[in-house]
Amino acid sequence: MSDINFKDVLLKPIFKGNPVTVLVLGICSSLAVTVQMKGACVMALSVIVVTGLSSFVASILRNTIPNRIRIIVQLVVVSLMVILVDQFLKAYAYSVSKTLSVYVGLIITNCIVMGRIEAFALGNKPIPSLLDGLANGAGYGLILVVVAFFREILGSGTLFGMRIIPESFYAAGYMDNGLIILPPMALILLGIIVWIQRSIQKDLQEK
């Protein structure tokens, strides 16, 4: 396992093997937090930290975990990381941690974390696992930020809480799209992202 291509490990999860749109992992939490850019960015960073660190730790432990109870051991490792992130957010970004509410805790059951541990960290050395975890977190974060970008700019005309669409537009009759803030539109936006990605990468299309 020494001939791992680091560039591949880092770049593949961002676009070609994106965990959300290609592997269908981690949709659970990705949609509810994408109403605003701020929440989405914080969530993306938390997931990057958690996937990276827990892949790293799981990879260190990989030779000592008995196979039968590995899921429970992995869950404990992951929830430890999530508790760290949650306490950190509560201490330094209390308002954001309130808006994210239960979704920070739900990173534990985010399939990306468990999926990467199962698929990569258990068979590889700690450093590549750390990179793989970080890259997959970043791929997930990218989708989150893209969805949040469209939802915030179309839904409330702002980015990070700052007004982007000028007042004169509203005076001329432009209106915010209230529907896009509601949960269902996140799913439809994600569907459109998948559509665009698969039109570009023909090999991903299903029959």
Binding site: T21, V24, P184, M185, A186, L187, I188, L190, G191, I192, V194, W195, I196, R198, S199, Q205, E206, K207
Partner: peptide
Amino acid sequence: PLRGLGITFITVG
């Protein structure tokens, strides 16, 4: 391009 995952997302939406 919409087959499988894409159309499922839109259906759920």
